[in-house]
Amino acid sequence: MYNQRPNLILGFHGCDESVRDGLMLDPNKYKDSKEVHDWLGHGIYFWENNYDRALEWAKDKKKRGKINKPAVVGAVLQLGNCCDLTDKNSIDVVKSHFLNLKQDYDVAGLSLPVNKNIKEDKHKDLLLRELDCSVIEYMHSRILTAYKGDMATKGFSEYQVFDSTRGVFTEGGPAFEGAGIFDKSHIQICIRNSNCIKGFFIPRKEIKWPV
């Protein structure tokens, strides 16, 4: 019952300026990420209350030749029924689905996907999360299938489909010598149900106050 997140929060999405401006004109014209290595499964990604990290990500993407002009679009989010990986209940749900997925792979004689490093990452943060993505997508699929089956046969279901997934990640190596604080630690949000996005906005520049 405590998976519901009724409060509004701000999220920031790093992208090309054309994508940002397109969302201002048509906020329903969005694109899900469906990479096999998405950290929180498939959906629309935001950095929670972290404009600077979103812009940094967009600038890094420009360096890789993926976008032309780095920009950030803000969003007002309500996470709804959230698989929050800072919460024990959600972690236990994901763990149980991992065991089921592993069993399925064992029966099929297949090897599970694995999380991988990229050679450019000196901190070995496992930036390609193929295992995590597979487990989370498997969880969403199993829950949705059970929900639809119940609705078709009984007209109701005790299963609750997740609207969003949220996780805290430590990344980038120690912020200073001997630190337990990491340089790129952040909270990431993956929206699956686009109704959780209440609106987009272009972030303002901060002004000096008081003057």
Rank of each mutant, 00 (worst) to 15 (best):
C82L: 04
F46N: 03
Y51S: 00
S96Y: 07
L77A: 08
K88A: 07
A108Q: 15
H42Q: 11
A71F: 08
L55E: 07
L99D: 15
V93P: 02
I67A: 06
S96E: 15
A71V: 01
W57C: 02
K95I: 05
V72M: 02
S90W: 02
D87F: 07
Q78A: 06
H37D: 15
W57I: 09
G74V: 08
H97F: 15
V94L: 10
V107Q: 10
D38K: 05
I67E: 08
K102Q: 14
A108H: 09
G109P: 07
T86F: 00
W57N: 12
H42T: 09
H37I: 07
D92G: 03
K102M: 13
V72K: 01
V76G: 01
G43N: 04
G80N: 05
Y45R: 08
H97G: 09
F46I: 03
P70T: 06
V76L: 09
C83S: 11
W57D: 07
Y45M: 12
W47H: 11
Y51V: 04
Y105N: 12
N49Y: 00
A71S: 09
S111L: 15
Y45D: 06
N81Q: 07
N68Q: 09
V76F: 11
G109S: 13
G109E: 14
D104E: 12
V93A: 10
K66R: 06
R64L: 10
N50C: 00
A108C: 09
N68C: 13
N49D: 11
F46R: 01
W47Q: 00
F98C: 00
V36R: 06
K102H: 11
N89D: 05
W39D: 05
T86A: 01
K95V: 05
N89F: 08
A75V: 13
G80A: 04
G43I: 07
C83Y: 12
A75G: 04
